[in-house]
Design a binder for these strands. Structure first.
Lengths: 152, 152
DNA sequence: TCCGAGTTCTTGAAGGTTCAATAAATACTA
DNA sequence: TAGTATTTATTGAACCTTCAAGAACTCGGA
């Protein structure tokens, strides 16, 4: 295969720059709103939200890290902070001594309730107000395929 | 407007989770390759790449920060590191005493050349190998519109 | 059963980013 | 043109994430 085949052509570069722009800027936009409304960053918010939707509002740390798209180490540090603020609790898993279970507290639910309306409003404003129904589905379908590659 | 209108429906949530998954995971995938191949993180790579494509391989710090999607403070810290490694140089702007100009050195060009093949290969692998030509353009067009909102 | 390999989680240190304060220059305005 | 506001960039501290090491446990084969 020729060397040139490895580089991006103009159309690919244009698409890439737009995508990576979203990737680079979206997190700080989300962090800003959450910090202001509920003194959380996006990752902390996602951890609380994931627990809220889980069975018994409880998850294993490693599963939680995966669905939140973060490393276990990152989650462990964040969990210590969240536990210190009384937003979650951790306890040993009865069925597997290696695992730790994290669960949402009432305080965590309240904090989530404080953060959520502004967060959803911002997501709508930045993403879904811009797209019609078909475009929204298309973006989701493409993202899902890319995510599968990135996770692999 | 009813309260419910503020929340995301199932299809929106599915799309959002896929998009944010890409946003959360893509940077660490890119960082990994760049760290291994050239001891750079993605932001450092972007700074060097932006300079390479600029007139005279030189840009004002604040313009550089904007095109790299980072804060000026972040860029300033990174520029100190890159300058320390001899990859860029900074000097006062002759026409506006407030501004600093950053320029790529030979060392910076070399480092970029070390990093680029693997980086492009990974981007192709993660993004463009998954999409046909039409999907690639569609993703770019949608991303561009979202980016415009996020930057506003 | 025992031992080695693998899994799960935490921790401290190193490295990177954000935030707030500051300095220095330019632009505006009365 | 003097004074004020704005723009541009840097800095150090606080905060967060990554990295590497280690502890505790489970699994599987000899």
């Amino acid at each position: 295969m020729s060397e040139a085949a490895h580089w991006l052509d103009d159309a690919e570069m244009e698409s890439w720059l737009a995508l990576i722009g979203v990737v680079m800027r979206l997190p700080s936009a989300l962090d800003g709103q959450l910090r202001g409304d509920a003194d959380l960053n996006y990752f902390e918010y996602v951890v609380l939200a994931a627990l809220e939707h889980a069975e018994e509002q409880t998850m294993r740390m490693s599963d939680l890290a995966f669905v939140c798209h973060g490393s276990l180490s990152r989650l462990s540090h964040v969990a210590r902070r969240l536990e210190g603020e009384g937003l979650i609790e951790r306890y040993a898993c009865p069925s597997d001594g290696r695992s730790t279970l994290a669960t949402l507290t009432d305080g965590g639910r309240e904090r989530l309730a404080t953060a959520a309306p502004g967060h959803v409003k911002l997501v709508r404003q930045l993403i879904f107000d811009e797209l019609d129904r078909e475009e929204m589905r298309e973006l989701g379908a493409l993202s899902k395929r890319l995510l599968a590659r990135i996770q692999a």
